[in-house]
Write a protein that binds this DNA or RNA. Structure first.
Lengths: 198, 198
DNA sequence: GTCTATATCTGGATAGAC
DNA sequence: GTCTATCCAGATATAGAC
């Protein structure tokens, strides 16, 4: 697996560090996570970390990218169920959600390094979700009238919003709300003849 | 309007400062907004500000509370339309949305001063929205089957998520998505007999 | 009540040895 | 590639005069 040649070792090590950071942030939360603590956790000095990632922000972004990879791999065959299961699993790693939320806020500044990442993240996510929806429409398990991109956008926004709120109020049942909304979104819009909507 | 007695002046001044900060953050954005800049903008020294608000976080929270007040007042009679109009108006003050998003992220830490504010904010918001929905059910403009609290929760989460994303990608048409979702949520669920949902 | 000046502190980044 | 040591910037918070 390790690439041969001059950069093999570094890349491998980088991966290890990333996974260590991922675990640490997941467990201990994002707040009170300075470079020093992160370095400690992976058994490296502060500058050791910086040697690999240049800056704190870039390290965080790398962590986020890595998580995206892992999530994608863990999901396997995309389906509404596997997506909701993913959200449910995220419940076990609040620190990562916290990290994401902070980076999301920071990314509002176009000059912030997370800006680019977030744009990609959303583009990939929306596209992937929309593809799933299109597939469902083709095999008839989703009504043809829904616009896949609009629905994907809304669902991702809903998920983000629920996660942010859940961090503040862990009693919130995210999956219940997601399932309810999914059902409402996919319901066939046919009315009984003679009834107006309002 | 100014209260008489020893605290009248202070309270009044506090209000002025708050409105100044509100305007400043709205215009210039949240990033690159330090205490010093805020103090400058309202024609006060850094410690002048702190005299009134104790700390930066508390000032920010006061700003957020103030905005909640103004929003509530500006909305007048609550209705789906006025809510969506509010979101549309928010488009003109991205800095305030940015502030909210940052505080939302920070509030994940229960020890952070914004934690308490956010809990209240969501409780008030959900309750108010649910009350509106209940009213609509009573006068028949909303189907009786929807659970007002669940729908309010979902809608607020959706709004938050759309706003966070809009900061990153201002091309996103928030109101269009909200209107679409509103329509999907309130659609009557009756199916044509003989059709399964999936 | 408001200002000036300053203390303090946190944490990210850098230089250079090994 | 990794560490130690140091630096430095930025920002908050405080002390005390006016």
């Amino acid at each position: 697996m390790a690439k041969r040649g001059p950069y093999g070792k570094g890349i491998e090590r980088r991966q290890q560090i990333l996974d260590g950071a991922l675990r640490t942030i997941a467990e201990r939360g994002f707040h009170a996570t300075s470079l020093a603590e992160l370095a400690d956790a992976v058994g490296l000095s502060q500058s050791g970390l910086l040697h690999y990632f240049g800056s704190k922000e870039q390290l965080f972004i790398a962590v986020l990218r890595r998580r995206d990879e892992l999530d994608l791999a863990a999901m396997g065959e995309p389906s509404p169920e596997s997506l909701i299961a993913l959200i449910r699993r995220n419940t076990e790693v609040p620190g990562l959600i916290e990290l994401f939320t902070h980076m999301q806020a920071a990314a509002a500044d176009p000059r912030h390094p997370a800006h680019e990442y977030m744009r990609e993240h959303y583009e990939r996510g929306t596209e992937g979700f929309a593809r799933l929806l299109r597939g469902m429409q083709e095999n008839g398990s989703l009504p043809a009238h829904v616009d896949p991109v609009a629905m994907a956008t809304a669902f991702i926004a809903l998920t983000d919003g629920l996660q942010s709120r859940w961090l503040i109020d862990p009693a919130l049942d995210m999956t219940a709300h997601l399932e309810l909304c999914w059902e409402r979104f996919t319901a066939r819009p046919w009315m009984r003849p003679g009834h107006e909507t309002r």
